[in-house]
Design a protein around this nucleic acid. Structure first.
Length: 284
DNA sequence: CACCATGTTCCTTG
DNA sequence: CCAAGGAACATGGT
């Protein structure tokens, strides 16, 4: 589920339900999900703490918590959804999902971090967060910043956009979408982009992310979905995807379909081991 | 069985 | 030394 817009929508939701809730008990069912911490460490350190607010940094979720006594220092739990992670607050009657990784007892409810592939995290390790580049929708991300990040790079621009230390939160879907919007081929070398192209791309990145957040915010999320916490948010383009979502992805996973703008067939290529989608006619 | 998947990190290569 | 590419991680869908 993991690019910036999806995490942003999730964070907004969690901020409506988590603040003020106290962690009465912690259960780590998948030790890998809390790495590099130990399960016992997580279970003992989190117990008794209370959620204050949830913050997003790139694709990371930062759960700010306060201790049971003022003498306790505050605590930040670092969450990341990986490829398949989900987080939600459930009534206790609901059965735990097959791949529940961490469960927090909140009293009448329970917070669940579920992660099929266990690429995600729920730890106390802030190192990766400290290395992140600026927020693409924040003031620290300017077209000059982007130009600087491209200046000496011989990487294809698509690959570079996925570097979280340059700018935080862009993933495989929105990298392709932003390049399509800007009319730039994913294969272009970073240093070859003109100042105007960089500015177009900068604008496109922000527009694409903003639109996705807006779309996700309008989808009726069902975080209490009975047995199917997935009814809430679908991040692909399958038959289960909300129409608003499907329509917004103009090139991603549309290999062979006609380009929305010119009708040419969308192409799929592999870059740095990952699929990129683009219109060979519109994007140069 | 083969190939694909929204991400990050580690190791190797050049 | 650095940049870039690829594999690994683990599971499920097609």
């Amino acid at each position: 589920m993991p690019e910036l817009p999806e995490v942003e929508v999730l964070v907004r939701h969690l901020n409506r339900v988590l603040p003020g809730k106290k962690i009465l008990h912690v259960e780590v069912l998948r030790p890998k999900s809390v790495r590099p911490n130990q399960p016992e460490e997580i279970e003992t350190k989190l117990k008794g703490f209370q959620f204050v607010r949830v913050e997003r940094r790139g694709k990371y979720l930062l759960f700010h918590c306060s201790g049971p006594r003022p003498s306790h220092s505050n605590l930040v739990i670092v969450g990341h959804l990986g490829m398949t992670g989900r987080m939600y607050v459930f009534g206790k009657i609901e059965p735990l999902p097959k791949h529940a990784a961490v469960v927090l007892d909140l009293g009448p409810e329970r917070f669940v971090f579920e992660d099929t592939r266990y690429f995600g995290r729920f730890s106390l390790d802030l190192r990766a967060v400290s290395l992140l580049g600026p927020e693409p929708l924040g003031g620290g991300f300017t077209s000059k910043h982007l130009a600087f990040g491209f200046a000496k790079s011989r990487q294809p621009v698509k690959t570079r956009l996925l570097d979280q230390t340059m700018v935080a939160g862009i993933g495989n879907i929105y990298a392709s979408e932003a390049l399509f919007r800007a009319g730039i081929s994913p294969r272009r070398k970073c240093y070859s982009l003109s100042a105007l192209e960089v500015q177009d791309l900068w604008r496109s990145i922000r527009a694409v992310l903003r639109q996705a957040i807006a779309a996700g915010s309008t989808v009726p999320l069902n975080f209490a979905g009975a047995g199917s916490p997935d009814g809430l948010f679908y991040y692909g383009r399958g038959p289960g995807a909300p129409a608003s979502y499907r329509e917004r992805l103009l090139v991603y996973d549309r290999h062979g379909e006609p380009c929305e703008r010119c009708g040419a067939a969308i192409r799929r290529i592999t870059q740095a081991g990952r699929s990129s989608f683009f219109c060979p006619k519109c994007q140069r």
